[in-house]
Write a protein that binds this DNA or RNA. Structure first.
Lengths: 144, 144
DNA sequence: TAAAAGCACTTGCATTTTGCAAGTACTTAT
DNA sequence: ATAAGTACTTGCAAAATGCAAGTGCTTTTA
C-alpha cells in the first residue's frame, strides 16, 4: 500500500513528495486538520467533497505511515480516535498557504475559503502563526 | 477528461487546485519546465520517473486546458512542439519551492535536487528570481 | 528520391485504483 | 436489552494507469 519510503521512482524531492501527497484526497484531510479544527473520522467524512470511507481509511493510514499525522484513542469514547498533525505535518502549512494563494488568484468557484483567504492575503505570516497557535492550544488540551 | 472548471466537487480552493494538480505526474512536468529547462515532449519523457506516453499526452493537454502551460510549433521542425509556462503557470513557483523545502527537510532519498536545493535554502527569494529570469530569457529567444 | 529514422502522439489491453453500497465488530446511549 | 454511533472492511463496477505496439507526419540519410 505504501511505497513512500521503499523504492522511490526517482531521487527527486518532487516525485517523493508527490508519492505521498499527490492525489485528490490526502491534502483535503490535512486541510481539515489545519483550517477547520477537525480531528475525527466522522468529521473528515462530513467535508463537502464527500470522501468515501475506504479512501479516507487508506489515506489516514498513509498519512500516519508518512509521519504527517498521528492518532490516539478518544479520551471520552473508546470507539473513537483523534487524529492530529505531527511537527512534520505542521511544516506543510507554508505549502498549503501558497497553494491557496495560487488557487485564489487563478481559479474561480472558491467561495468557501474566501473569508479565510482574506485573512491570508492581509497578512500571510500572521495567519500562519494563528493557525499554529490554535493547533498548539488543541494539543495542550488533548495531548498527554 | 477535464472537470477542472465544470462542476467542482466543492467550492474549496484546495479541492479545486487538487482537481488540476492533484496526481503523481502533473507537477513533475511543471518541475521540468521550471528547473530543468525542458520544453519538449521527448524531454519530459526522458525524466527519471519514466512517465508513459499516454499519461504525458493527457497531462500536457490538461495543463494547456487549465491555462498553466501553452504550446507552439517548434520553429525549426514542424513535427515538434514547444511547451512553456504561462503567467498562471509561473505563479506556481512559490508553491513548488515550499514543496521542495518540506521534502528536503522531511524526506530522505532526494539527492537529485540536492544541489538545486542548496541554492533555495541559501536564498529562496533570489532563487525564484533567477528561475523566473531564466524563463524570461527563454521566452525572449523563443516567443514571437 | 526512396528508405529509414524521429517525433508526437493514439490504441488496445491487463492491472491497479477509485467510488459506491453494504456489511461488521465494537462501544455507547436509551 | 435494544438501538444507535463509530471506525472501519468487503465486494463489485467503473475509471485511471502502465505497458507495448501501432499510426501518421516530418526530417534526415543513402
Amino acid at each position: 500500500m505504501a511505497n513512500s519510503e521503499a523504492t522511490p521512482r526517482s531521487p527527486c524531492v518532487f516525485s517523493n513528495v508527490l508519492d505521498i501527497l499527490g492525489d485528490r484526497w490526502t491534502l483535503l484531510i490535512v486541510r481539515d486538520l489545519f483550517f477547520f479544527g477537525k480531528h475525527e473520522y466522522k468529521e473528515f467524512l462530513s467535508s463537502p467533497e464527500a470522501i468515501a470511507t475506504n479512501i479516507l481509511a487508506s489515506r489516514l493510514q498513509k498519512l500516519v505511515c508518512a509521519g504527517i499525522i498521528d492518532e490516539m484513542p478518544h479520551p471520552q469514547n473508546k470507539s473513537r480516535k483523534l487524529y492530529f498533525l505531527t511537527e512534520r505535518g505542521k511544516d506543510l502549512l507554508p505549502m498549503l498557504v501558497e497553494m491557496a494563494k495560487w488557487g485564489e488568484k487563478h481559479l474561480t468557484q472558491t467561495e468557501v475559503m474566501r473569508p479565510l483567504f482574506e485573512v491570508i492575503r492581509r497578512d500571510a505570516a500572521a495567519f500562519q502563526r494563528k493557525v499554529l497557535r490554535d493547533l498548539k492550544n488543541w494539543e495542550k488540551a488533548n495531548l498527554a
